[in-house]
Amino acid sequence: MDWTPAPRRSSAMRREQNLALVGAVVSGAVIAGGLVLLLVARVNPDGAARMRGVMLDLTTPVWSVVRAPFDGAGRAISWAGDYLGAVSRNRAMEAELAEAKADLQRAAADRRALASLRKLDKVRDPARRVVATARIVSATSGSVVRSAMIAAGRGDGVGPGLPVIGADGLIGRTIEAGALSARVLLLTDPGSRVPVVVTRTGEAALAVGRNTPNLVMQDRVGADVPLMVGDTLVTSGDGGVFPPGIPVGMIISIGEPPQIRTAASPVGAGYVLVEAAYLPLPVVDAPPALDAPVPIEARQGKASPAKPQS
């Protein structure tokens, strides 16, 4: 009578098969769920904003602690370099200072003239306002999205959609904010489009990121003056996010499309300014939709001044 092991093995095998089947179904469901999430993200890109903010708040402190010793070492090196090169730099700076003083006198006269002209014309300029000064904590290079984290968040008044400006020029704009930290979309991201104007010719265009070191210039508007290598680009103030006149970059090749090297790099930016959006678009209440047909008398009564009823 050797029948004992057979039933047990078959039930174990059945169990294995069932488990494998359940595993395959769960795997398929999970992958399908991921694709559904993607479609949701396409329809509603701002979903999960709070969760993103929480994740930012969790990671930013880690990197600000981890990078502190490296920052210290870098500062020591640059301090030593300052001492070694002090004399030659001092001479160069004195020469520059003399030129700058002459420029400054001319600029003061221009400023007076401009102020009086504006008074005549009643030009209204929105004021720029600094929301926060923060340091760039980290910038991801492990992802297809080019972004940096800064150590200032909703607690400091930083929300999404604010311009971020470094000492040398534009860095990017904020896209997400947690309580203590915010994420900056850098100029080099493929989703970044900055309205710029060429300072020499006044031609307007968009500076578009390509996930490469340089930006490209697209959608040029206005008189077709040929570009020159070395032309500088500043923000034009169109679109209402970036204030006008902030350096964006320099043309380094005039092929098609023209390539732009960014003025500021987030590498050595250190501290950056987060400003209020230059001219945020006003929120307009949509007029209530009227489905019901309105009688002509009622419409006329609305249009003409109401007569006293009595």
């Binding site: 795997s27 999970v30 992958i31 991921g34 694709l35 559904v36 999430l37 993607l38 949701v40 993200a41 396409r42 890109p45 979903g47 999960a48 969760m51 993103r52 994740m55 990671t59 991801t140 492990g142 992802s143 297809v144 999205v145 972004s147 896209i175 997400e176 994420r183 979309l185």
Partner: peptide, 20 residues
Amino acid sequence: DLLFAQPLGVNATLFASAAG
């Protein structure tokens, strides 16, 4: 996805497929 500021689901779908 949350950490890299990518749309929710890109890495999730691909990592799950990779494990499968």
